[in-house]
Design a protein around this nucleic acid. Structure first.
Lengths: 237, 237, 237, 237
DNA sequence: GATGAATGAGCTTTCATTCAT
DNA sequence: AATGAATGAAAGCTCATTCAT
């Protein structure tokens, strides 16, 4: 019924309970991605995980509980990894560009996770909040560095978030190619009145996108040797 | 149960069947807006329309059918009216600014319709398409007029749409005030590399927003005298 | 699955909805009597009534709703009919004796109803209350007539109620015969310090017990000729 | 989760299995008292006992089994202790009065046990039977002593039992005070046509109620020094 | 003996849909 | 066209019970 997913893989060496729980989370991702949160049913998640429906309730209070947990794990894992991947970048705008491109590229390589992120963003505010916080930090850095002159208020951040998510959705639908991240980055920078040439340079520079691991907790990174940064390649269009 | 809405008002002088159908559509708008599409139930729509639940199926094949119809009517009515309201504006950018501000202001004055539009946009592509088409025309006009240099492709239009909808959502949530339309207009124009001063001028100029009528079909405009354009007032911020 | 019961019989000439509702009430009586209120399931009631489980909810909000309705109907019908049957008895003690014997005899001729009454009494206080009220009135009458000297307070009434219900239960279990009503009546009167001979005379006198009709609403009595009082016989032991 | 109860206390010096079993029984009493038998769940009993739910089935076949065992222990313990407490009373009526008052007073001081007794009585016949047997013995003694003239048959005993339980329930509900035992005793004696003055004297005489121990098996009484008879006080009303 | 995850039947309830009236 | 009772599948959730550890 299901190809075991990343949660299951992570829990491979844990006890049975943890493995079942992981199966359920993987199944939830699939069902949420396929049917959306509202239409997803606990029974379907259990069926996908190949456990009895009652088993679901051994591990999660209800559908919301697993949704929150899945979303929290996704948000934390992605933002943490992106943060680490650009630890050595100082420039606020470059950080923004890197994070945006990395985020879209990652999510579009894991379409199910991508869809879950999009769907979750609309009604799991904590997930949205977390991403906003990270993005905001980079933009603020850009402002302090004198590159952004505009006020960075909630309306602006909200607008930028909607642009990034729209680009991700287009990428997932197949309406946009691997250039989606660069394009939306350039558009945002233009919007912030960054000189067009600089905007273009930041948005389209060759960067080494990493393959993000899901779900990955920091401490585990240390156990196994650091994941070989897979060159998704310079994106030249 | 329901204050009869615009569809009912429109059908006032038609036969009973048409009036019942109109009641159902008004009720659907209310229920969709209040509960969302998924959570909306046919029984609830029928109850709100004060007809028997079986009556629903006399007029609509199923829940999707009424959603499509309502959305189509909304989209047609709004875009038509906005088009007519700015018939005398030639400048592409000004048209875009007017339409955007008018659209957000209208939808936020009719919160139920506003929410339906937002909710419908995500899964009634035809509605989205229609709005895109109209917006695209104005942007193309701006490009032909030499104001926009960028290519206006699907990705760009999609991005702009997402910005406008995000602004509308912020307005509906109460996170943005009546300036939302102007702000998002300015951001879009900046994004298109319109000179900031011009962008600002277009976005914030005093305009006479009209009170749009819903649902109104063109031919009926001719029957009753043209709706008195109600000055919602110049928006000065 | 079910021999149609008295509610169904009553509703025979009403519309389909009323007949279905009546079927459900008859089925509820059977299931409540057989399984008790707690163990009774809505599905089982629907199955017994030979309707779809969803149909239950067309007619009743939930299990409690049908329980309350059934109990209310039973209590009202029985107390009303007993009241009418002894309209011409003035003596408080005789009224008490008549009502007690009539009640037990009726309920034991309709074992299912009898069990429902016993089970309902413990957690549908309104039913208990109503019976208490009627009994109390007769005892008070006896006190005003100078036959009872004891105070008639809640504790006493509660005790008497428990005795009557115990007698009914014994009768339903088959541990007591038709003399149950007379025996418990005599015990109660003794308890109230009525002279033993008078107590015995009241409790064992020949009376014409009526066949009570369930469910019967007063107005229907007038439509059809009054139910032939069926002599359940003088009870002589 | 649970203040360890009397069964646990008793098993303090036994092996672990016995202690676990005792914990379960204490927990069962609490849950039965709080939720009733039907609504009680094995999981809840196990949780209250702070053992795994599977552990329940190591000690008891099913929910009924623990109910039967708890009820049997309660009935045995109470009747045995009351018997011993009135070992020196010869008069049948006084024994009846003492036992009744002692029983009600004990059960109302241990409300959880009181409720369990009431709830169990209705569907654990063996418990009921045992109490009946003891009561019957005292009444028979009174008959042999010439104080009771009436036949003491099952119906009468059943009636008296129902009165005693009704009094206990009233006491537990708070509808009756500490006089409940005396009142119901007097009512029963009146019912048996004992001269009112004697009935009153027996029912209301000052007696030394003991604090009963639960659960206590005779042999253990010898181990620990006999429980100090705690004067709950003469009840004077 | 103790554990607690896993099970699956069965519960209450909702709801889109049908159909006789 | 309008009705609204009836349907039954399917949802969320509980729980007695089993079983591998």
């Amino acid at each position: 019924m299901m190809n075991s997913g990343p949660f299951t893989a992570e829990a491979r060496h844990q006890n049975k309970s943890a493995r079942t729980r992981a199966r359920l989370m993987d199944a939830a991702v699939q069902v949420f991605a396929r049917d959306g949160f509202e239409a997803a049913s606990v029974n379907e998640i259990a069926r996908m995980a190949e456990v009895a429906n009652g088993t679901f309730y051994v591990h999660f209070k209800d559908k919301d509980a697993i949704a929150v947990e899945v979303a929290a794990r996704i948000a934390t894992d992605i933002t943490d990894q992106i943060d680490r991947a650009m630890a050595d970048i100082d420039d606020g705008l470059e950080r923004f560009g890197f994070a945006t491109r990395q985020f879209i590229e990652f999510a579009s390589h894991q379409p199910q996770w991508g869809w879950v992120i999009i769907r979750a963003a609309s009604f799991l505010p904590q997930m949205h909040r977390q991403m906003e916080t990270h993005m905001c930090a980079d933009l603020e850095r850009g402002r302090r560095q004198g590159q952004i002159t505009a006020d960075i208020d909630a309306f602006l951040v909200d607008t930028i978030m909607s642009m990034v998510f729209a680009a991700l959705a287009a990428r997932l639908r197949g309406d946009a190619g691997p250039e989606a991240g660069s394009r939306v980055t350039e558009l945002v920078l233009n919007m912030l009145n960054i000189p067009p040439q600089r905007a273009h340079a930041i948005a389209w520079q060759t960067i080494a996108l990493k393959e993000l691991h899901l779900p990955t907790r920091p401490r585990q990174e240390r156990v196994s040797p650091p994941a070989e940064p897979v060159r998704l390649g310079p994106i030249q269009i």
